[in-house]
Structures are given as structure tokens and as C-alpha cells.
Write a protein that binds this DNA or RNA. Structure first.
Lengths: 195, 195
DNA sequence: CCTACCGATCGGTAGG
DNA sequence: CCTACCGATCGGTAGG
């Protein structure tokens, strides 16, 4: 038996911890459980991560980097609608446990200390929310979209995605493409039949 | 000093527990904290409620009754759009702590035992989700709405509401009427400018 | 990274 | 027997 490389061990911990936090929330999981799932002792866990919050925020931070990259790539598309479509597609295409981290980020962040929470929320705002707002703002400015408040519209969009950020066992039983097209049609064209 | 009537004491416990669970989630609150907030001992708490899950489910159940009533009243309206509008208005008009119970119901229900969770989820489905699906289904059948899958559309609608189910301190700083009208316009007419 | 622990606090219950 | 609790403490477990 050869021990794992430290970086690989860290990755393994993050993977198992993600799965557990997604299933039962921040306070629903003990550090002991994460250690067992990763095949190390609890003290070993504290070698890789300063404390429980540090481990939790590492998961959220890594996800935020991927979100930021997704948005950066999408901004190359020609219209607001095309940009949003690319982002929504990218989010729904993530593996279930990755998608569910967005749920953790909006929900369980409340359980970390005020200082670290404020720091993460600010980063999340800058790297993700502000970018989405800019896309909608530009869409309104160019006359592509109705003159809605981008601030409200961003939360409507993220809200529409929210139920499909589950683990995939509960919701998301529907075909991917059908959810995607229904979401985009509803968001841009509305549910009402045009007269 | 006269002791409170048992029913009043129970109401007081439910009120304080709601506030605490909303702020910090199911596992984030100890029975001791709820007891202190209600001005009784922890043992007194267990006189009124069998255990922590029983107390938690009493909160969700009472909210579900109100949701069911809201939907029943709304179903009298003449069109699917008018019915949905009345329900959305009713939900956004609730006091912040009441609104936030919807968040608890979708999120923190995962933390109760499988049997009790299954029972509550079934009741929630029958008394709320199925009713919303019926409204959309009828709307599609009567040609008011695009031929969307009611199952997906219900979750898009509830998702749009979700960000505004916070405690009111974070989101919901926007004027009520503006959120309501933006949500309904987006849901029924879409964000795109008609050509 | 482990074994061996800590101060404190967890949900729940005893007798009166 | 009942109600509406109380002070004290149970066996286990939390993060560190």
C-alpha cells in the first residue's frame, strides 16, 4: 500500500465532503464522517484544512472559479439571450453533485462566521452575480430585453434554475433538453400564448 | 404573574422556533435555545412537543395549511394567469418569517427521519404542488398558456419565488410591487422585447 | 497524518 | 389521577 499524494488526498477529501454536505447540509455532517469517508482519521483532516469552515469554503470557492470561467466564456456570444442560454446550459450540464454546490453556496453559507461569509459573498457577487447583471443590463440597453431591473431579473433567473440544482435523485428526472428549452422559452418569451 | 394558557404557550414556542429555524436551519438550533427564547425550560418544551422533529414539522404543517387555503381561494379566479397572480401576491405579501418557512420546507425537510419526511412530502405534494400543476394544466388545456409540461413549469414558478423567500434582510429590499410585476411579466410575457 | 484526549454542548428524560 | 412545568442530569457526540 502506497499513501496518496497530498494533493490527491486533498482532492479526495473535497470530493467526499461535497457529497456529504450536499446530502445533509453544513451542520448535518460531522468532521468524523468526512474523515471516515475519505479513509483517514479526523486529525488527518485537520492537517489538510484548518477547520470545518475552511474545508466548506474550499468547496464553494472551487465551484465559484468554475462559474466565473463559464460566465467569461459565455460573454463572447453575440446577444444577451445567447449568453444566458450558454450559461444556463453550462449549469444544467454539470454533474449533479457539482450543480448542488450552488445550492450550498446560497443556503449553507449562512452557517459560516460573519467575516468569512462576508468575504465569500463579496467574491461571489463580483465574479458571478455582477457579471449576470451586466449581461442583462446590456441586453436592456441594446433593446433586446424589456426594461426590467437587472437586479430583480438576475434573481428570477437564478431562482428558475434553483429547483434543478438538486442532487438529481429528487428533481431533474426530466430530460435535460426539455428543462433547458422550457426554462429559456419561459424566461424570454413567457408562458402566455401570444394573441 | 399568571401562567400562560397551554395553547398560547404552544403558539409562543412555535413563533420563537420559527424565527430561530429560519435564521440558522434545523441543525443550527438547539432545543435549549428555543426553550430560552420561549421563556420556559427545555423539559417544558418536551411537554408540548414529542421531540425536535415534532416541533419542526408542526411549523411546516401549519404553513402548509395556509398555502392550501391560499390556493383554494385563488382557484376561484377566472384565468390561469389570474389564479397564479393571486397566489404569487399572497406568498409575497406574507410577513418575512412566514415566507421563509417555504424555504425551510424545501430545504431542511431533508433532516427529518425518512418516515416522517415521506409523510410530509406527500401531503405537501397533494395540497400544494398538485394544485399548482392543475392550474397550469387547465391553462394549457384552455389555450391560455403555451403547451408546456406543468411539472416543469411549476418548478420554474416556485424557483422564481425562491430568492424572495429570504428573511427580507438580504433580498427583498426591492419594492414589493416591482418584484411582483417583474415576476409576473417575466413568467407570462417573457423578457424578450416582442418584434 | 495518528492516538488519545479536552471543554462544551447535543437531544432527550428522570423524579417530584 | 391530572396539568404544566422545574432543576438536574442522562448517555453520546460535537469541533478541535
Amino acid at each position: 500500500m502506497t499513501a496518496l499524494d497530498p494533493a490527491d488526498q486533498r482532492e479526495r477529501i473535497l470530493e467526499e465532503a461535497t457529497r456529504l454536505f450536499v446530502a445533509r447540509g453544513y451542520h448535518g455532517i460531522a468532521m468524523r464522517e468526512i474523515a471516515e469517508a475519505a479513509g483517514i482519521s479526523k486529525a488527518g483532516l485537520y492537517y489538510h484544512f484548518k477547520d470545518k469552515e475552511d474545508l466548506f469554503l474550499a468547496i464553494l470557492g472551487s465551484n465559484l472559479s468554475q462559474l466565473a470561467q463559464l460566465v467569461r466564456q459565455a460573454r463572447q456570444a453575440p446577444s444577451a439571450r445567447a449568453q444566458i442560454e450558454q450559461i444556463v446550459r453550462g449549469l444544467l450540464d454539470q454533474p449533479p453533485n457539482q450543480r448542488a454546490i450552488n445550492r450550498l453556496a446560497t443556503h449553507e453559507i449562512a452557517h459560516v462566521s460573519p467575516e468569512r461569509r462576508a468575504a465569500f459573498v463579496q467574491l461571489y457577487q463580483q465574479q458571478f452575480i455582477d457579471q449576470l447583471q451586466a449581461i442583462l443590463h446590456d441586453g436592456v440597453r441594446r433593446g433586446e430585453l424589456r426594461p426590467v431591473d437587472p437586479h430583480i431579473a438576475v434573481w428570477l433567473l437564478l431562482g428558475m434554475l434553483y429547483p434543478f440544482f438538486g442532487t438529481g435523485q429528487q428533481r431533474g428526472g426530466e430530460p435535460h433538453e426539455q428543462v433547458l428549452s422550457t426554462l429559456l422559452t419561459t424566461l424570454f418569451d413567457g408562458l402566455a400564448v401570444p394573441e
